[in-house]
Design a protein around this nucleic acid. Structure first.
Lengths: 240, 240
DNA sequence: TAAGTTCTTATTGTCAACAATATATAGATT
DNA sequence: AATCTATATATTGTTGACAATAAGAACTTA
């Protein structure tokens, strides 16, 4: 019994539980990622509890979970605040992604079933089609992560998948939202994804890892260049 | 104002906060790692609250934090249970370590100060001395992780450090405790650590990363061999 | 006797009040 | 006027009681 391909939409709406605590986690998480609660802003428990129509118990549990996702920082007896994504933190995040997703690509080349590889091709094809149909339009970044997600899942490593898809992914989403003014239009990602699939099809873990690492490292470089300028301009962030 | 070198002991006793919730987290964490609460065992909230002399509130927060550390699994409306470290999970953990600590070693080669490198040498020297003074005795595994810890910290990447030292490290500790009957006596780790320092001193990120990855991959292989046998015998687990 | 069903019990989820701590304000002192 | 101190306020930490859900026991039925 194989699971149907899971899209990014399914991940997002992944309702881990129907408990108030779980629902509040989702609501609060989206509020933070979307910037409804600003970076650096304090999370006032009574106010938020009122806002989400729950008591402070579930709200505090939600905050704890967001701390685990690194969207929130917490100091005892002082409170929780939304993280501020400094350039330094983002670059750190991309170094971690490079390491983890690189390994994921290697494992995917070893472990992905032929069927999963076909699914991956389908995702890429959809992606390419969209780019052709909408030339000059910014990439659908979710489609991009769909691709990465399939590879991560294809690694067969549950710990790796949890770390990337459940935790770090939301940090990435938050960063993307904040920098959505830099709309990426490059089709370089498409080419690099194509190369990656080829390496996986060839069952070449080393090549797959190398390609994924370069892919992410390139995005990191683009981010550094784009954000270290005071006037950022519409630079291509590499869409990763 | 530079911080004094932090040993593994300091990490362990790192009292993040004096709150009941924080204290309970530490106590419960140690109870799980030491096996006082068995793998697979259910965490009964009223009983544990009674046992730790706190109400269920702080206890539940502690459980949430241990879920983030992956020491505990939680199902809504059912409860929390201590993780059972299957061979598969351990191998997954070591693949993640290989990726993350490999990158950490590369970054350490780039970023560690000359002074930090000297400290690292001192740790290794202490380690070597202990091995010479107690030939045939099992390695002080804490000393081993002291070495790894220094390198991780030396990477200068806070996210990486948090992931390895605050989260995954406790899983490793739990695994080590459970397999402490396999006392590692090899001095291969010592040799490999020596090579690693050399690479870092030479400011060679690629070599440092390669050496660290091989170091951990070798430990993974040793674990697989030791634990896939029904009668494990006293195999060298590589002490990583 | 075995399978299914209802009822009981135990456990988790949630709430609102209370206690402890930190922040903000106002006043006193140099 | 600026700084330190003491008080007042707001916020976090903690508790025990209540509600909702799931696991287990006893009963019924084939």
């Amino acid at each position: 019994m194989t699971k149907p391909s899971e899209t990014i939409a399914e991940i997002k709406n992944q309702v881990d539980d129907k408990t108030l605590s779980g629902q509040t986690t989702l609501a609060l998480r989206e509020a933070i990622i979307k910037g409804d609660i600003a970076p650096g802003e304090k999370l006032n428990e009574p106010k938020l509890a009122e806002q989400f129509q729950v008591s402070r118990g579930p709200l505090r549990e939600a905050i704890r979970r967001l701390v685990a996702m690194r969207l929130v920082k917490h100091v005892p007896h002082v409170g929780a605040t939304v993280v501020t994504l400094e350039l330094k933190s983002i670059l750190e995040l991309y170094d971690v992604r490079e390491a983890l997703e690189g390994k994921a690509a290697a494992l995917a080349a070893e472990n992905m079933s032929q069927q999963d590889i076909e699914k991956l091709r389908a995702v890429l094809e959809l992606h390419r089609q969209h780019s052709e149909d909408n030339p000059g339009q910014y990439m659908q970044t979710d489609g991009d992560f769909d691709f990465h997600y399939q590879i991560i899942k294809g690694s067969g490593n549950q710990l790796l998948t949890d770390q990337l898809c459940d935790e770090l992914y939301h940090l990435i989403r938050m960063f993307r939202f904040q920098t959505s003014r830099f709309k990426s239009r490059s089709n370089r990602a498409l080419i690099e994804h194509e190369q990656l699939i080829y390496a996986i099809e060839q069952r070449d873990p080393q090549l797959a890892e190398m390609l994924m690492r370069k892919h992410i490292a390139r995005a990191k470089t683009a981010i550094k260049q784009a954000l270290s300028n005071t006037e950022p301009a519409y630079t291509d962030l590499g869409s990763v």
